[in-house]
């Protein structure tokens, strides 16, 4: 069977690329890391991959706004290549800073154009960076990365994670049309104030998908919970603790295997 190939994008200030590559490989993909300059030089490079990940970090120091400078660079140099990548039925995942980049490029929530920014991510209500663990409840059955029934536990680590929309109609549309992928909830699946919702995000939105369900952007870090010893109190829990983060990568790899590779070879 052909290999599932994944690419973790690097750029100045991206710093979760190594563990993201590790998580992708753990999930069964053959994963590489490449600097954005290589993609700009060789636009065909993306053709070799079925999964593209924008990892977390502080691209260009989050200068101006989180993800903004890298988004600007990608929009002006790689817009067509990435559009084609998605149109080809392939998968794009943005984690934390990568999610911020996808939003600021306009790929998410993605109404078909790049520059239509009607949803944004801004400063946490707390006004500061925070690293803490959160529960997430799926809100859509369209997104190929997530299991609709499975509540997950993952860490967030950011200063700008509050999702806001330009107006109430857009928010309604996001919810009713299945663009909201995860909400922040408590252990029992209920929405609540800080710190349950760690950044004050509108209606506790933690993650968004697009109309295809093949693009996911999320503030929490799935690559930081792929082994049980990454859980913040694993020493209290059993050996059978099932890491939630790895599921997101496995789902992506399985989707590619079932929908892209088999159809290619058929």
């Amino acid at each position: 069977m052909a290999e599932v190939r994944a690419l973790a994008l690097r750029a100045a200030g991206i710093n979760c690329d190594v563990e993201t590559q590790f998580a992708l490989e753990m999930a069964g993909a053959k994963a590489d890391r490449a600097h954005v300059n290589r993609l700009i030089e060789d636009k065909g490079l993306l053709d070799r991959y079925q999964i593209l990940v924008f990892p977390g970090g502080f691209s260009y120091g989050d200068d101006v706004a989180a993800g903004k400078i890298l988004a600007n660079q990608v929009v002006h140099h790689l817009a067509d290549a990435i559009r084609k990548f998605i149109d080809d039925g392939k998968l794009v995942l943005g984690i934390c800073n990568g999610f911020q980049v996808l939003i600021k490029m306009g790929i998410l929530p993605g109404n078909g154009t790049f520059k239509q920014e009607e949803v944004t991510i801004t400063n946490n209500d707390s006004g500061r960076y925070e690293d803490r663990w959160v529960y997430l409840l799926p809100q859509t059955d369209r997104c190929v990365f997530i299991e609709p029934e499975r509540q997950v536990y993952l860490p967030v680590a950011h200063a700008e994670g509050k999702i806001v929309t330009k107006n109430a109609e857009l928010l309604q549309q996001l919810k009713s049309d299945g663009y909201v992928a995860y909400k922040y909830v408590d252990k029992n699946g209920e929405e609540g104030p800080y710190p349950i919702n760690p950044n004050g995000s509108t209606e506790s939105i933690a993650a968004l998908t697009d109309s295809t369900g093949r693009v996911l952007g999320l503030m929490p870090h799935p690559e930081r919970f792929v082994r049980r010893t990454q859980h913040p109190h694993w020493t209290r829990l059993g050996e059978d603790l099932d890491p939630d983060g790895i599921k997101i990568f496995r789902n992506a790899v399985r989707y590619v295997r079932e929908n892209l590779l088999e159809s290619c070879t058929a």
Binding site: N15, C16, V18, E19, D131, A157, E223, R224
Partner: peptide, 8 residues
């Protein structure tokens, strides 16, 4: 306020 989990 410190990222104590990066690098996985």
């Amino acid at each position: 306020q410190y990222d104590h989990e990066v690098q996985g």
